[in-house]
């Protein structure tokens, strides 16, 4: 469903990714690991269509992302992808529920229906009680749950998460991750999680390890 075909990326003279080939099947659950600076975030940004690789192609359901305009990639991300980053990236001026409603509303769902879906999902994630608070007024864990809800509310094909639990304590991290994995499994959403944490990786089925911008196939086999 989502494929990287020989992608390479450099920031100026710094090579971040060199010839990465990766295939993610529908409904698969993949952990992306590797030392700091190995290119995990860069790869994730390429898969999400935020960055366009210098070489190679990113294919989504047979469509070449690298050939699309910024606007088309945005539309594709809105429709078929969900993203979660370390600090949630909720819109600070909206309430949690408004943040979760946002993708639905952008896709043309009426406000009342969007609100209902968002509230359901927030309920499942256990943060219905703070749904009407703004992001500044809730804990990091609550905000991160809302971010997970926002990534899943429109039932995308794939959720891309970059250290989604990196700013949380172990207990919270565990809970958020469990919820994310459970929900995406139920919805049949493919999941890619960048993490430094072996515990996190153990919740997922596949493991991809990056080293110096290249796939470390030995590591993959060793764990897988």
């Amino acid at each position: 469903m989502l494929e990287a075909l020989g992608i390479g990326l450099s920031y100026g003279a710094t090579p971040a990714l060199r010839r990465i080939d990766l295939t993610l099947a529908a409904g698969s659950r993949t952990a992306l690991m590797g030392p700091s600076g190995s290119g995990k975030s860069s790869l994730l940004h390429c898969l999400a269509g935020i960055l366009v690789p210098d070489r190679g192609r990113v294919m989504f359901d047979g469509q070449d992302l690298t050939g699309l305009s910024d606007r088309e990639r945005s539309a594709l991300r809105l429709r078929h992808m969900g993203v979660v980053f370390q600090f949630g990236d909720l819109v600070p001026e909206l309430t949690l529920i408004e943040n979760v409603m946002l993708p639905l509303q952008l896709l043309g769902v009426k406000r009342a229906a969007a609100r209902a879906s968002a509230r359901d999902l927030l309920g499942e994630l256990g943060v219905a009680d703070v749904a009407d608070s703004r992001t500044g007024a809730v804990s990091g864990g609550q905000a991160q749950r809302a971010a997970v809800a926002r990534a899943l509310v429109h039932e995308p094909r794939v959720v891309l998460a970059d250290e989604p639990t990196g700013s949380l304590d172990t207990v919270n991290a565990e809970a958020v991750l469990d919820a994310m994995v459970a929900l995406s499994t139920r919805m049949g959403v493919a999941l890619v999680v960048v993490t430094h944490d072996n515990l996190v990786a153990s919740h997922l089925d596949d493991l991809v390890v990056l080293r110096d911008g290249m796939l470390d196939l030995s590591a993959r086999e060793a764990v897988g």
């Binding site: 945005s74 991300r77 809105l78 990236d89 819109v91 600070p92 001026e93 946002l102 952008l106």
Partner: peptide, 16 residues
């Protein structure tokens, strides 16, 4: 910018 970035991440069209 943070707010804008996060809106763009969701896939909000720049026109909006």
């Amino acid at each position: 910018r943070r707010e804008l970035t996060s809106l763009l991440l969701v896939g909000t069209p720049p026109t909006l």
